[in-house]
Amino acid sequence: MQSYLVTAVVAFAAAAVALFLAAITHRLIRRFGRRSLLLTELTDHAHRPFQVAVTVLAVQLGVRFSTGYAIGTPWRKVLLHFLVLCAIATAAWLVASLLVVVEDTALARFRVDVPDNRHARRVRTQVVMLRRLTIAVIVILTVGVMLMTFPSVRGIGAGVLTSAGVVGVVAALAAQSLLGNVFAGLQLAFSDAVRLDDVVVVEGEWGRIEELTLSYVVVQIWDDRRLILPTSYFTSKPFQNWTRTEAAVLGTAEFDVDWAVPVQIMREELRRLVEGTELWDGRVCVLQVTDATGGTVRLRALVSAADAGSLWDLRCLVREHMVAWVRDNRPTALPRMRTELGDADSNLPWQWVQPRRPTRRTTDAEVPDDARVFGGSDDGDARSEAFVGPEETRP
């Protein structure tokens, strides 16, 4: 009974001293680290695991030295073993919290709430992936170390190590899909193929990378649905990444109209429209005739926006406005089917058409920028140099 009381008193005293020292350390770090982001993160996130780890370690030392004269008592062995397990678990908790503090401090230097945040999103993706990997490794190592404290488990482990090759092969075959996704997640994190908040098109769906883990990727679709795909999908199948190099993108709006459409006037109307909306980023505004078959003329309006969401709204605005403009101002340009009923010998008066006076054609030097995609402006010249090839290969 006397040994029990001595052990209890020493354990409570050790715990009290440890809590007091942890509180003093916490106050000192908070006071002298007000201007340091690292120290502030330490006081906010690492204080609790540090307090628990120091207390458990102090109690363990107190119990060990206070019962030195009763080495053979069974309760002492059980209690010390339990305290060792607690010390291992709290030490792992402290290490994990320190790693989280370091990662959060590193992430604070890279802001993602700015327009040009490609580099920040890449760093954030890599740090998040490393955080999850390191925490998983710490948990696995902690469980392994705790199991190795049992003598029976150590004996079994020696036999297992002799056949580690066979076990490794069997485990690799059994977890082939899981390991493939893990390595695919690491490849995505460090290859810069996809990052958090990237706008992608996968499986015919347009959305944003919301979450990126070692085993799966969550894509937030534009209508707030979630598309969950394994990470190996992005390393084995093609997908569109609209924001890999920059957020600014181009988009089209196509119209099938009659041959009587005044292209230049319609081009001027498109320019007036985009200049009056904040959705346009001022880079590209082009209207071209891309096809002229089947009794209709196909016009394609190419516009640019600062991001994918603005581009979608801008394309819809261009379609809506240009359709209304053709209907109200150029009704003869609406698509229609022509049928001629007349004399095969062309003897009817309406079949005789007087030739019109020749009109002066616009020279190449006079072609406006709104009629060119690959030229006519600095952005168009740069695009022309990037897409060198036959004309039929261009969009």
Score class of each variant (00 low, 15 high):
P262H: 13
V137Y: 09
W93I: 02
L147F: 08
D116V: 06
W242F: 15
L227T: 03
T339F: 14
V286A: 15
R226S: 05
G157W: 05
V303D: 09
G168K: 00
A18Q: 08
E392F: 13
R195V: 06
R244T: 08
T55V: 11
S3Y: 13
T363G: 15
R118W: 02
S215F: 13
E205I: 10
Q51N: 06
D224Q: 13
I156F: 09
L19Q: 12
L178F: 05
A248Q: 10
R300Y: 06
Q176D: 12
K237F: 13
V78W: 13
D307E: 09
V263L: 12
R109K: 14
E392C: 10
V249N: 07
T277G: 00
V63K: 03
A292H: 12
Y4L: 08
L229V: 13
L39K: 08
P368I: 05
T105F: 10
S304W: 11
G72R: 08
I29S: 11
Q2W: 13
S152V: 07
S304A: 12
Q351D: 02
G342R: 13
I88M: 04
V200T: 00
A175T: 03
A193C: 07
A292I: 08
R27W: 10
A189Q: 10
D104W: 00
N117Q: 06
M337W: 10
A106S: 03
D307F: 07
I138D: 11
R356A: 15
Q264S: 10
V353P: 03
G376L: 05
L334D: 01
F32C: 15
A172K: 05
G207C: 08
W280P: 01
V143T: 12
T105S: 09
A184S: 15
G72W: 01
A11S: 09
L107F: 00
A91H: 00
R35L: 11
V59P: 07
A14R: 01
W350H: 10
A89I: 09
Q288S: 09
M337G: 00
D223L: 06
V127F: 04
R30C: 10
E254P: 00
Y216F: 15
A172W: 13
D381T: 12
A174K: 04
L39R: 04
R109C: 09
M1Q: 08
A260S: 15
G168I: 03
A260E: 15
V297F: 04
T293E: 15
T393P: 01
A58Q: 11
L79P: 02
F190C: 01
L42C: 14
S377W: 01
E41V: 03
I135Y: 09
G295T: 11
A8K: 03
A87V: 05
T7D: 06
V373L: 13
V373Y: 02
A324N: 14
R327H: 13
A22R: 06
L133W: 09
E254S: 14
A305P: 02
S377E: 10
L273Q: 11
R298E: 07
A11F: 07
V257H: 02
R271C: 02
L214D: 09
A301E: 07
L287D: 02
R118M: 07
F190L: 05
R283Y: 06
T90R: 01
L188R: 00
A96D: 12
L311C: 07
W280S: 00
V194R: 01
V367Y: 05
F255H: 04
V200F: 01
I140F: 08
A108Q: 10
